[in-house]
Design a protein around this nucleic acid. Structure first.
Length: 470
RNA sequence: GGCGCCAUAGCCAAGCGGUAAGGCACGGGUCUGCAAAACCCUGAUCGGCGGUUCGAAUCCGCCUGGCGCCUCCA
């Protein structure tokens, strides 16, 4: 295993650093989840796939991963949407959270260890705010509580900006109740009709940011190894989390490695709910291209932005089929290859294995790792064509499938799962084989074409034909 | 205005100091009754201009063109 050899780029240092965990063999990973107020789009899908890949590789490398992904299940947008639909905020969020679990599972994302929700952690949040007030890092004002940004000397270290420069940016709300325009809300008193929870300052709700600090402390013992999210969260969200957590805990760094995935672009712009250029995860699932989407995402480095196009999705689909073909192809009936073929294949396996791990250890370079998988796939096909035996072939295919699984790619798919149609297709194909022996080309071609039109692809072998779901 | 990122073959995309991975598409070939799949062959000097270096796609500067963030955002 590769534990101890991994290097990770951290946004905090802007450099690649050796990965060392707080506790040996255990990774505490906190990834910012969604605010469930609308259905999830493929940008969320990309992020969740990226961190799933990272988590899988860490586990593959021998670590135990405590993976926490939160839901920020109370905020203005949730309240607005719930009011418009005439349901409660929690009805809305519970429904969307349930859907989230279904959809991410369908994307082959491993479940996080814990999925905390802001509204179920109010006591921890209140306690943290009290602690911040006690230490002079926060203050109450008419039932609201604000974080005193200038009381935290490290403010701006993640996003690399200084408080004085931020002042000049004219987009900061001037709020008379704040001591300083940069201060941000930790607790907001409820307006009439809004959901609220009791606190020493008012019946109200937590501000954005504080829930993540509180849940991190509660579920991962304060400091974490990896803290992740999209690049759009660097400022203000993660900057504010650092301020809150480090001010509260009185130690730094609160997170050792800050990982940020590049954003998915659509039509040249960032896909965003507010712009409205959305492709939902559901659409992807309904089309049956979830695995192709994962391959598309992982064929680009996680830190780079990625533009989603139909063309690149289809290219990934073809690539996926290629890998699956190599992973599941059967040996030729007349396998009589010499030892040269077997030993060349064995060499290809160990080469691919080494390249794969080398790439993944280098800041999770999945594109390079996948290139090694394609190389292995070619070597397998080649060996099969050269008449490699079942044993040599299946050993290498197992390795290909295992490495694919480390990335969450399902390469070991059954040749054709069309449910109850299977036996009937088998029948048609075997009749067609007899027609072919009788050189009844017109009829056999017709069967092939008709099946193809119904999503079944036939491949003629030397002995018999095989079929698979196209 | 501030902070930051990016620009590699038709498209997507690795590499980040020693003479360009991989995928898709295209073309040629092998195999096949014809196909499909598979396999083989074929394509780039890395946005532009300077500089550093024995040597740069990789480092520095300038320019051009994109993009993200600056309190909604994975």
């Amino acid at each position: 295993m590769s534990e101890g050899n991994i290097r990770i780029y951290s946004t905090l240092s802007r450099t690649v650093e050796p990965f060392e965990t707080i506790e040996p063999g255990v990774v505490r990973m906190y990834v910012c989840g969604v605010t469930p107020y609308a259905s999830a789009h493929i940008g969320h899908g990309m992020s969740v796939i990226v961190f799933d890949m990272i988590r899988r590789y860490l586990e593959h490398s021998g670590y135990r991963v405590r993976h926490v992904q939160n839901f920020t299940d109370i905020d203005d947008k949730i309240i607005d949407r719930a009011n418009r639909e005439g349901i409660t905020a929690s009805d809305l969020t519970e429904s969307l959270i349930a859907t989230w679990h279904e959809e991410t599972a369908a994307l082959n994302v491993l479940p996080a260890t814990i999925y905390p929700q802001a509204t179920l952690e109010i006591p921890q949040i209140v306690a943290m705010i009290e602690g911040l007030i006690a230490k002079g890092h926060a203050y109450e004002q008419d039932g609201d509580v604000y974080f005193r940004v200038r009381s935290f000397k490290g403010y701006g270290k993640l996003s690399r900006r200084s408080v004085d420069e931020m002042i000049s940016g004219a987009r900061i709300d001037i709020d008379e109740r704040k001591e300083d325009p940069l201060d941000f809300a930790l607790w907001k008193s409820a307006k009439p009709g809004e959901p609220h929870w009791p606190s020493p300052w008012s019946d109200g709700r937590p501000g954005w940011h504080i829930e993540c600090s509180a849940m991190c402390s509660h579920h991962l013992d304060g400091v974490v190894d990896i803290h992740g999210g999209g690049t759009d969260l660097i400022f203000p969200h993660h900057e504010n989390e650092i301020a809150q957590s480090e001010a509260f805990l009185g130690l730094a760094p609160f997170a050792r490695y800050w990982l940020h995935n590049g954003l998915l672009q659509l039509g040249g712009d960032k896909m965003s709910k507010s712009i409205g250029n959305i492709v939902s995860i559901r659409e992807l699932l309904e089309r049956g291209v979830a695995d192709a989407f994962r391959l598309m995402v992982l064929q680009s480095h996680y830190r780079s932005p990625l533009t989603y196009t139909e063309e690149s999705l289809m290219a990934a689909q073809k690539g996926l089929e290629r890998l699956r073909g190599a992973a599941t192809a059967s040996a030729q009936p007349s396998s009589s290859a010499g030892e040269t073929v077997a030993s060349e294949l064995a060499t290809a396996v160990s080469t691919a294995d080494a390249l794969f791990h080398e790439a993944m250890n280098d800041d999770f370079d999945s594109p390079r790792a996948i290139a090694a998988l394609f190389d292995l796939g070619r070597a397998i096909n080649r060996a099969r064509d050269a008449g490699a035996g079942e044993d040599a072939l299946s050993a290498s295919q197992e390795r290909l499938i295992e490495l694919g699984a480390v990335l969450g790619l399902r390469l070991d798919v059954a040749a054709g799962d069309l449910g109850e149609a299977g036996p009937y297709i088998d029948l048609l194909v075997s009749i067609r084989d007899e027609l072919r022996v009788a050189k009844q080309w017109a009829l056999s071609d017709r069967i092939r074409d008709e099946l193809m039109a119904r999503g079944v692809e036939i491949a003629d072998g030397p002995q018999a034909s095989t079929w698979r779901k196209a």
